[in-house]
Amino acid sequence: MSENKLNVVVPKDYNGTPIEVVLREGTAPEQLEIKEPERVMIDGTIDAPYRWLEKRIDLINQKSSNIIVNRDKMGMVLTINETNYYQDVITGVLQPSKEMVEFGINTDKKWEPIKLSQFLKMHRAFFTDKSQNMMLVSTLKNFKAKVNQDIERSKEENGSKVDNYSQVVDSNLPKSFKLNIPLFKGFACEEIEVEIYADVDGRDVSLSLVSAGANEAIEEYKNKVIDEQLDAIRQIAPDIVIIEV
């Protein structure tokens, strides 16, 4: 039989009132693990830094924050508590739209004629002229290309060599077509003209989509959008330093 002893100290001014002693047995509750503060790391669209500041401007020290702008990468980075290891970082990037990526416009993406035909058929909604879409789908489905090759080889008696090769491709593809798609993620649609470039290597044919107008619009638009975001940030956070790199 176990025996538990308690030492009870009675104060000098004890007046005889009964003293109740409660003995509870068991283990003390476990304390929660102490964890380090978590950093806020957000990657969003180009307006992410402004949206974050808009709701938290009263909670930060603007003098210890900064915004780094990189126009070549079409983005900006907001850093809060820049000297603190647990600094918060909100990144906003002007991202190409899902549609631009899927079409592969102005990229190294190559299409087989039949694959491009199927893709355009399923994305008819982006064509400004639905009849043009139907014509293009049919043309790609029955793509024909006539390749004329001229080869000239000669060898001179003195050892000089001539090796000329030329290739001319005559196809039934239309010169261009028009799409109505967003250039950037989260932005409205723009009308752009797209050209089809054919690369013929013997019997292998690959197509690529090129739009000089889209490329020009992107260059102009990115600076406009970034400047609009910076102006909006200056209105609500005038003391945050903005640095272009």
Rank of each mutant, 00 (worst) to 15 (best):
M1S: 05
M1G: 07
V9H: 06
V9Y: 07
V10C: 03
P11V: 11
P11L: 14
Y14K: 04
Y14C: 01
Y14Q: 01
E20W: 11
V21H: 06
L23W: 10
R24W: 14
R24E: 14
E25G: 13
G26E: 10
G26T: 08
T27S: 15
A28I: 08
A28S: 10
P29W: 04
E30M: 15
E30S: 15
L32H: 15
E33Q: 12
I34Y: 08
K35C: 14
E38D: 14
R39W: 11
I42L: 08
D43C: 08
T45S: 09
T45G: 12
A48M: 04
R51F: 07
R51I: 10
W52P: 08
W52L: 06
W52V: 11
R56K: 15
R56S: 12
I60L: 08
Q62V: 04
Q62A: 06
S65W: 04
N66I: 08
N70T: 05
N70I: 09
R71G: 08
D72F: 07
K73G: 02
L78C: 10
I80A: 02
N81S: 09
E82H: 06
E82G: 07
T83E: 15
N84P: 02
N84Q: 03
N84D: 07
Y86W: 11
Q87A: 10
G92C: 00
L94K: 00
P96I: 02
P96A: 02
K98R: 15
E99D: 11
G104Q: 02
T107Y: 01
D108E: 06
K109P: 04
K115D: 14
L116I: 00
L116E: 01
S117N: 02
Q118P: 07
Q118A: 15
R124M: 13
F126W: 08
K130D: 12
S131D: 11
S131F: 09
Q132A: 12
N133G: 13
M134C: 08
M135G: 05
M135E: 10
L136N: 00
V137Q: 01
V137N: 01
S138P: 10
T139R: 06
L140E: 00
K141L: 14
K144P: 06
K146G: 06
K146H: 05
Q149W: 06
Q149A: 10
Q149H: 10
D150P: 15
I151V: 14
R153Y: 13
S160K: 12
V162D: 09
V162R: 13
V168H: 13
V169Y: 03
V169E: 04
D170P: 04
S171F: 09
F177P: 02
F177V: 06
K178G: 11
N180V: 13
F184K: 00
F184A: 00
F184S: 01
K185V: 04
G186F: 05
A188E: 12
E191M: 15
V194A: 03
E195S: 10
E195D: 12
I196P: 00
V200H: 00
R203I: 04
V205M: 04
V205R: 01
A212H: 11
G213P: 14
N215R: 12
A217V: 13
A217E: 15
E220Y: 14
E220W: 12
Y221Q: 13
K224Y: 13
D227I: 07
E228G: 09
Q229T: 01
D231L: 13
A232T: 08
A232L: 10
I233Y: 01
R234C: 07
R234V: 05
I236K: 07
A237W: 01
P238C: 03
P238Q: 03
D239Q: 14
I242D: 02
I243S: 11
E244K: 02
E244A: 05
V245P: 05
